[in-house]
Structure formats: structure tokens, C-alpha cells
């Protein structure tokens, strides 16, 4: 698996997958739907799949002395790596925003989503959607990625919309606090989203492995 992940990074990855990690810094932008950063980070991974298809990456991989299903695991491992790096950058930016700039007027009066634990939780849920909808859909054929990506695009932007609406609902305004550093509910939301991300990714990977095992190259 280590060799396959190295192959993903050194041969299959698009430079955009790394470049788009910078979108994690969108967490610092006030009055902006910052959750789209999760979409852009996933878009970088999508570019790697596109470049992989152009370069016969899947065929190259299955011809190596590896299990066919390991090719799937490697793609998931690469995706999770990029997502966690993007999440890490966004988490640092969110930390800076909450700890050092929590009282700054643009954030306190922000009508759009604030960067806090709920925002990071939503990011993980968007990532989980990508892993289930796009990755899971791609491995039905290991070739066609248009339909799963369009589907992901729709559900991810719906997710961004829901995230932006929730904190306007009476009783849920706490979701948009600018510095809820000690709010146990907010931490709970982040932990719950992390659990959903882990479970969804693992289940999706298992399903994708089964699907790919049935694919004729």
C-alpha cells in the first residue's frame, strides 16, 4: 500500500490537487460562503482522476503485481491524504480566526458562515459526500467520472446551502458563533462529523472495492 500511495503521489496526482489545498485558507474570508473551500479541495482530487484517466493510470496499476482492490484503496488513501491536508490548513486558519480574531467586527457581524467547529464539521461532511458519491460512483466503471462528479457538485452545493441556512434558523444561531472555543456542543458537532466522515469513507471504500472487482478493463 505504501508503494501504491507513493505511485499516486508521484505519478497520478495532478499538481492542482496540491495547489487547491490553498483554498483551506478561505476560512479567513469574512462575508463569504467559505464552505466552498471543501468543494475546491475535492475538485483538486477530481483533477487527479482526470489526469489519471488520460495517462492510463488504472490499467498501469492493475498490471503491477498488486491486488486489483489495492488500486481502489490507494485512490482512497490519496484522497483522504489531500482532504486531511486541506482540513488541517482550514483548521489552522479557523484557529487563528477564533483565538486571535474572534472579536473582530467583520467576523462578529458576519451574515455568512463563520469559521468555527461547525464549519470544520461541514467540511468533513462535504468530504464524506465526495468519497461516497464521486469515488464510489467512479469505481462502478473505473473510467466514467462525469456523472458521479456532476452528482457530487449538486449535493455539495446543496450542502453548502444547508450550512448557510442552518445558522439563520432560530435556536441554531449558536452555529455561527465567531469564537465558541469552550462550547461543548460545537466540539460535539465536530466529533460527530469526524465519525460520519470515517464511517462513510470506509464503507464507500469497501463498496468501491467490490464494484471495481467486477469491472472488465
Amino acid at each position: 500500500m505504501k508503494n501504491l500511495l507513493s505511485k499516486e503521489i508521484r505519478l497520478a496526482a495532478s499538481p492542482l490537487a496540491w495547489l487547491f489545498l490553498v483554498f483551506g485558507l478561505m476560512a479567513l474570508i469574512p462575508r463569504y460562503p467559505i464552505l466552498v473551500c471543501a468543494f475546491f479541495i475535492c475538485f483538486g482530487v477530481f483533477q487527479s482522476f482526470q489526469s489519471g484517466r488520460e495517462n492510463n493510470d488504472i490499467l498501469y496499476t492493475v498490471l503491477l503485481p498488486v491486488r486489483k482492490t489495492d488500486a481502489v484503496k490507494a485512490k482512497y488513501a490519496f484522497t483522504v491524504l489531500i482532504q486531511m491536508l486541506g482540513f488541517g490548513i482550514a483548521a489552522v486558519a479557523t484557529g487563528v480566526r477564533m483565538v486571535l480574531l474572534g472579536e473582530a467586527t467583520p467576523y462578529v457581524t458576519n451574515p455568512m458562515m463563520n469559521a468555527n467547529q461547525a464549519f470544520l464539521a461541514y467540511m468533513l461532511l462535504i468530504f464524506a459526500l465526495f468519497n461516497v458519491v464521486f469515488l464510489g460512483g467512479f469505481f462502478k466503471t473505473a473510467y466514467k467520472f462525469g456523472k458521479p462528479f456532476v452528482l457530487f457538485l449538486i449535493v455539495s452545493f446543496l450542502g453548502v446551502g444547508v450550512g448557510e441556512v442552518l445558522h439563520h434558523i432560530p435556536g441554531l444561531t449558536f452555529l455561527n458563533a465567531s469564537a465558541p472555543l469552550t462550547d461543548p456542543v460545537m466540539w460535539g458537532i465536530l466529533v460527530a462529523a469526524a465519525a460520519v466522515y470515517v464511517v462513510a469513507t470506509m464503507v464507500s471504500c469497501k463498496v468501491a472495492m467490490k464494484r471495481f472487482a467486477l469491472v472488465d478493463m
Binding site: L11, A12, E54, N55, N56, D57, L59, Y60
Partner: peptide, 8 residues
């Protein structure tokens, strides 16, 4: 006709 990683 198959080539891999054309630009690497």
C-alpha cells in the same frame, strides 16, 4: 498503442 504517464 498504450502509454502511461505521457508527460512524466
Amino acid at each position: 498503442a498504450v502509454d502511461y504517464y505521457k508527460k512524466k
